[in-house]
Design a protein around this nucleic acid. Structure first.
Lengths: 232, 232
DNA sequence: TTATATAGTGTCTTAATGACACAAATATAG
DNA sequence: CTATATTTGTGTCATTAAGACACTATATAA
């Protein structure tokens, strides 16, 4: 037991940060889970996460980034707050609040990294139903998945699952894997032009047929939102 | 000082919940602020909020609801998590995390309530720039405002600023006040029909000309999202 | 050289919103 | 009581971005 800051009268809930890291592995949308080494839920798969280190983390974003880097060796190119989950029963140690983040990363970026630890593993979305996840992490993942799917309908979010340089076909496939339906190549091209987020590289890449134009994200661009969703 | 639960090794940040309550007062989008009775920021205007009471609040939503009811006497018909704000410097008492909510309520619902306390006051959005708000509450309000405006472009969110029964003209005005631009009456009518969220009342209401049809929300409906935004 | 595969373009269709005129119904002024 | 102004509600054409899909361009492979 340890003395913590007081708020004057109430017990504080235990506060933690968790992250749902998405990537596309073998053409399947997947999340990174870690094998819990300690109780509670020892031996269960869980989201990467932990406590804020007030001496290191400038804010909770830093905590999420730090925890993801510990497990993957890299900082994900996209990270955003999802929402918090709280209650007396979600953790057997007592009343708790966890702030969930979601992030996307290109799989080749993670797999090429030598620091990858082996207590972490990618699970494709469909296989999660059979898995007995720690805490309410099943719910958190569902919530994150929903957010990623929605946001992929009106933004270029899925680019963050790709390598730095990519083709239209690769982006199209990433979008289709994430939202679970096919889209029109033409519609995607129109959005790429309208968004002004990408630059054409001089390079072209072989793909079995005509060479494909290579694109990459411009420096310091924000994810822009379109006025309409891809139809459902 | 008081002993809190341990997480094994780290100091925990101080955790609180704040809420940005919106309503339309005198045809202006406004937020409810409270006059802080204690340090820090004593005498400053601040968002209603406080600490989770682990014995009362089933989750952080309950905390937000409880705090809003203390200040307005009613529970807002719409409440949603916004995001959390954290860091070592946002509260002079030390590293802190606050989970911000936003909510909407019909002004007549609040003003008609006898329990309204007088340390709380409605401020219209435009007047906030001059005000020196406590903590990072200025930033939180801006963030909540942005969310409410965005969501009002593709949903019927603004109905929650109205009385239980309302006319199309009232809803149109609420939307226009929130998003800051005028919309087509016809477009709104089409959305009302498409959403299937509302029921026509038998009643009609005087409005200076032809009597207006009265609508109200159906029981237990969710806020549905349209595929497009109102154009900007 | 020819077949096949993938990349990119042209263009018609579709669907929801914007614009706006017009009809219906009510209040008010004279 | 009548005329006029005002607000509600409808009809319909224009606009815009996405969907569908054919067609052209350019590569590889047999």
């Amino acid at each position: 037991m340890q003395v913590s800051q007081s708020n004057g009268s109430f017990k504080q809930p235990l506060f933690s940060v968790d992250a749902v890291l998405f990537s596309i592995v073998d053409s399947k949308l997947s999340v990174l889970l870690v094998d819990r080494a300690i109780a509670p839920y020892k031996g269960c798969w869980a989201l990467p996460g932990g406590y804020v280190d007030v001496d290191i983390d400038t804010c909770t974003d830093s905590t999420a980034r730090r925890k993801l880097k510990e497990k993957t060796g890299v900082e994900p190119p996209y990270l955003e707050q999802l929402q918090s989950f709280s209650g007396a029963d979600r953790d057997p140690r007592g009343y708790s609040v966890t702030l969930a983040y979601y992030a996307l990363v290109g799989y080749q970026l993670v797999s090429s990294n030598v620091h990858t630890v082996d207590d972490a593993k990618w699970w494709d979305i469909a296989s999660l139903a059979d898995l007995n996840l720690a805490f309410d992490h099943q719910l958190i993942i569902e919530s994150a998945l929903h957010r990623v799917q929605q946001k992929s309908l009106y933004s270029m979010l899925p680019v963050y699952c790709l390598a730095k340089q990519f083709t239209i076909a690769q982006l199209k496939l990433a979008i289709e894997i994430i939202i679970g339906k096919s889209i029109q190549r033409k519609s995607l091209i129109r959005r790429i032009e309208a968004s002004d987020m990408f630059e054409l590289m001089d390079q072209k890449i072989a793909s079995g047929g005509r060479l494909a134009q290579v694109y990459q994200l411009k420096e310091n661009v924000d994810l822009i939102s379109f006025e309409r969703n891809f139809s459902r």
